[in-house]
Design a protein around this nucleic acid. Sequence first.
RNA 1: GCGAGAGUGGCGGAAUUGGCAGACGCGCCGGACUUAGGAUCCGGUCCCUCCGGGGGUGGGGGUUCAAGUCCCCCCUUUCGCACCA
Length: 832
Amino acid sequence: MEKEIQSKIHKQYPFDEIEPKWRRYWAENDIYKTNLSRDDDKLYCLTMFIYPSGDKMHIGHWYNYGVTDSWARFKKLKGYNVFEPMGYDAFGLPAENFALKTGVHPAVSTKQNIDYIRQQLSTIGAMFDWSKELSTTDPEYYRWTQWIFIKLFEKGLAYRKTAPVNWCESCKTVLANEQVIDGHCERCDNEIIHRDLTQWFFKITDYADRLLAGHEKLDWPAKTIAMQQNWIGRSEGCEIIFREISTNTDIPVFTTRADTVFGVTYMVLAPEHPLVREITTPERKKDVDEYITFARKQSEIERTSTVKEKTGEFTGAYAENPLNGEKIPIWIADYVLLGYGTGAVMAVPGHDQRDFEFARKFDLPVREVIKPKNGEPAGDLSEAFTEYGEMINSGDYNGLTSEEGQKGIARYLESINRGEAKVNYRLRDWLISRQRYWGVPIPIVHCLNCGEVPVNEGNLPVLLPETDDFRPAGDGSSPLAKISDFVNTSCPKCGGDAKRETDTMDTFVDSTWYHLRYLDPKYDSGPFNPDLVDRWMPVDRYVGGSEHAVTHLMFARFINMFFYDIGMVKFEEPYPSLRHQGIITHQGAKMSKSRGNVVIPDDYIKIYGSDTFRMYMMFMGDYSEGGDWDDSGINGIHRFLGRVWRILEPHVNTLSHKEFPDFNKETLEGLDKDLYIQLNKTVKKFEEDFEAQKYNTAISAVMELVNSMYKSYEAGTATDVFYFAVKKLIWLLAPIAPHFAEELYHLAGFTGSIFETRFPDYDKDATIGDVITMVVQVNGKLRASLDVEIDIDQQAFEVLAMDNPSVQRHLEGKSIIKKIFISNKLLNIVVK
RNA sequence: GCGAGAGUGGCGGAAUUGGCAGACGCGCCGGACUUAGGAUCCGGUCCCUCCGGGGGUGGGGGUUCAAGUCCCCCCUUUCGCACCA
């Protein structure tokens, strides 16, 4: 921001004195240090903790933390015992890449980042309970991350296998499926390739059905639930075991369309399928090998593109269809994925579009075995008929519907031991190994005699060793592999020579359980304090970005279910109530360092103050929608606070000892009555809007109230009702401009903090005025609007309406057909 | 390609169940105060108008006394998924 512009902006009130003063006061008096031993009316308000990547906190963070804090402040004023912690998800690549560039050790740069971000966070003026601050890089934290790994290992839920995995050549590490976005690395946007590596996985697939079932209990955005459902991708179908003829090997396939099994004209294996080598005939070997190399070389993007032409090779082998005994050729093609189902499919070109395209390209036969219900077979298909219908050309099954056929065929296959009904998932096990330095070491020792042995719990944490060489080898081993003091150890079981695991864990493991640790981050008898967890979990409100739908949010649910299963927690879902803040873009694009469009709030806070900035974010629009950052309106909010300051500051000094009568709308008159009614309407609307996170309209209601207070004040001397409104207004401002309200509260002579008081009740009777504006329409067009007493009856209103010259003009010479009267709204006169 | 959401003034955005379209704010115009306005307070601001009115919520059709809101078709756009057998 230009200096020149800065100097032009008029400081509306002394926020630069007020804001630091009250932040200091809140900290010194432990106003936001939550009494966790008190669990009545508890409200655990959690925002996703910050990932200190070396960048400053930007507008998006503020939008999450600042606005959610306002919601939490409102809840605190409504009597809840609010716990609002903050911490740092500080392991990960950015610190390490920074180290590679500058030579500054990640531990050092991370500490610097955290110190800077802590300072930035403090300017929000949020109710963070800093006594519960934590960082995932603290050995006392990751000790327990390792402990959780060992518990999973003991239950068989952490295991190592060799598999083709996502490899980012730029980050020189593997990635989980969840971290691959459109074939590119989530972090650096580099294209992903596949490599066969031995890696650690968490067996999240065991929890697939429970993760799905749990959705029913969740108060989450429907879209987020849908994303998880799609990601898990449960699919009901049938496994059918074909037999390769020359080697007599079973090849199971998964299909959702067992009813089309008579239409199978060939079979396709994924190029990486282990059986390919065994079944390929010598004369086909050369072509098949070439194709496998070709397929493996392709990037994820090329490989999964739906628009490219089908490719494949014939293996020379044949399989037998267990239903009709037919001999069909076995092909390999990259449109079949090793990772899904059995990595092999039965091809039904007549009823699957992909198979159809493949068959046309390679001149394989197409057979029609399903015809439309109440329709005729197409004869010559121009595309696959993929809908359900009636079975034809299917032996004994002819005439059955697809649904009946699927059941019948599954039963038959089971009876001859060649298949059964089966459920498949798209979800894969969670790959948690990373070949990077700045992460939690996996607490496993490899012993020649005993195999994989977990480190004794008493020897945790396995500390991340010191080194100056963070460069990953790029051969699939981590920088830790080069540190012989770290690698060479003895087996915890047999005491013999052994080597440590050198991979570190995905940072998403760190964040699966931080909400539990927050309650007692110094607890040292376990990962979390079970007593406090019983009292305070689950989280009552969780707010963060929707980009974590199938990563953090799913992983945390999985780990929590695991805790539940081993009796560590009493609830299955850690975050029953979730909301997302919208994304704040800038210049039409998502903020990112590479685009150079990141907006840092610090300058705005210097010029306008933290309260103005917070309110502007809330006022910008719908919270869940976000929007494009445009600072042209921020001065309007600043001006509004100035306006409030100028009408409150001169009038508050007597408030703390001022006695107000019990106002009643019946005994008030004129502007006093109007103001009193508007005040109560505003309090009511403010509460309702805040509950619904409609912050923009809550603020606009307060603006309207202030406008009326100006009118009321200018119209005469300050009345009791005016002073009453002045007082209530301080509380309406408290959640949205906390420093500002605290100052006025003290100027009014009150002591303590306003956040230890209660939000005002409203007078229900006074939320409705007794005069209302009703409209008169003729043929649906507005002809008059009349101020009338509330609940006026049709007859009385018609008399007034007919008396109106504008209405009369439009009735002249017409005959009235009917009249529609909606109480307190309108009268519509239909004429001809 | 499939699925979900969105489309309202110059701009951000408001509009319970269908019932005054454009709240509130920005910007702009005018007035007051003033040496001054970049501060403040007040007023105006959807478009057209012969001042009677007429038109208007992406486009087209429909239901209704009444449609931003409901139904059908189309366009644009955001997000998610995308060879998952």
